[in-house]
Nucleic acid binder design. Structure first.
Lengths: 146, 146
DNA sequence: CGGTATCCTTGTGGATACTG
DNA sequence: CAGTATCCACAAGGATACCG
């Protein structure tokens, strides 16, 4: 589980933007989270990762893996055989992040439909059209929740 | 709090890539997490957000807020006063995501130094040089952990 | 098998100016 | 105050070809 150090009351501190920026710049790209979560179960080799992550290109897999290795989130182990075999595995640090990633995935799995519904609703009441929410009589000074 | 539905044993299922892709495409951009975490404490108005999130442009704040509103993660309430006042507030759905975001921030705060250290180490032993890790006694067919 | 190298398209987002 | 509109730069990333 992720440490719960700072989630006492549900209150976010403003000055921590820097940390969020940091983590975002590292794992907020298109593939990093996917690689981490795929590697979460067990060590995998290059070709396995390539196959397990639909849509990723060789280039991006390599780039992502190198970045993660540099940051100490995974290890790359090459066996000098022929044909070559290379295994990637999360470090403890990597696994600690995995927990946060799974927290995200969990949220996505749970609330996916809610988001989809909201999107659909916004499309219906639509682009350019005024949102036809049932007859709010607009008393003086009433706020408009768009 | 994030539901912990799928974080039993620390094992990631492969087929959930789709969900991670979803959540990533939504909140993986440069500002979304920052806006959510900034809005986590209390409702804020446009100008507050602009001031609280260092480096964000008007354009990106507007774009991000609209996307979040569409997805039902926050509400926009405009008070028809002069000068205009608009307040943004997380919905319950948004707050549920906030928890996962804080989980990320927590990880960043806790492990930031580890990552920085690893990066520094890779720069030192660096680009082109072999990593001189102290004598791990490799058995026959020794794998190379780069 | 496990990558690199190169090229080139695209999306993201910054700067700036203007509006209700 | 709270946006919109327009233009543009840059880098992320896909396609393809090749290498040890």
């Amino acid at each position: 589980m992720a440490n719960r150090t700072l989630s006492g009351p549900c209150r976010a501190w403003p000055s921590e933007s820097a940390f969020i920026r940091e983590v975002l710049d590292r794992i907020g790209d298109k593939w990093t989270m996917l690689v981490i979560s795929t590697l979460g179960g067990e060590p995998l080799r290059y070709s396995d990762l390539l196959a397990s992550i639909p849509g990723i290109s060789q280039r991006m897999l390599t780039v992502t893996l190198k970045a993660l290795e540099r940051d100490g989130l995974l290890t790359r182990t090459a066996f000098p055989e022929v044909p070559p075999r290379v295994v990637y595995e999360l470090t403890d640090l990597g696994r600690s992040l995995l927990d946060a990633v799974l927290s995200m995935a969990s949220w996505a799995a749970t609330h996916y439909e809610d988001v989809a519904a909201s999107r659909a609703a916004h499309e219906r009441s639509g682009v350019g059209r005024e949102k036809a929410h049932g007859a709010s009589p607009r008393p003086t000074g009433s706020a408009v929740t768009s």
